[in-house]
Amino acid sequence: MLMRSPILRPELLRIADMVAPSSRVLDVGCGDGALLEHLARSKNVDARGIELSQAGVNASVARGLSVIQGDADTDLAEYPSRAFDYVILSQTIQATRQPKVVLEHLLRIGRFVIVSIPNFGFWKVRLKLALAGRMPLTGMLSHPWYETPNIHLCTIADFVALTDALNARIERALAVDESGDVRTLSTPGYWDNLTAAGAIFLLARAE
């Protein structure tokens, strides 16, 4: 197999930074497997994936990754508890039918959970809705309302509230700006809820 150095979105590099070497990783919604391959090559992780799209699964398996075709909403239940060190859900939770159930499963399956979200509280989003009165289109939210896969959008503050409700501990949190640069998310994050285009959370179930 050829050695590739996949070009990752800056956000995926930040996620990769959160993963400890030689750990077991499940990437839910792994796309074409770029993040998993990066983790397998650079951190020697045992990399597994779930992907809904046929093309993504085929591309991932062709890269030599262990990926199954499946749906986060229906197929996470079959995974045993604590089967992975990290479960990653990158830019996907807002597209699931039951984000709370999905997050509960992630916290059950992984010792740690890494979730990245687009922030619907971002000032540009608020401004477009407030001033133009139209559904906002931004870099992270680029689909018009009638064909967006994002059916459960939230703000950073909303997501933090959900982690509280699920008794999940936030180990680390990063605010992501539009260019992909990150900074540590301030707590409780009111300012970042306005200024960050997205966020990345490292979660663990509170024991």
Binding site: D46, R48, Q54, V57, N58, S60, V61, L65, S66, V67, I68, Q69, G70, E78, Y79, P80, A83
Partner: peptide, 18 residues
């Protein structure tokens, strides 16, 4: 088969071809 392999913690890929 894939569900059973996952439940058993096996290393599995699953591909359906169109």
């Amino acid at each position: 088969i894939v569900h059973a392999l996952n439940a058993g913690g096996a290393n599995v890929s699953f591909v359906e071809f169109e």
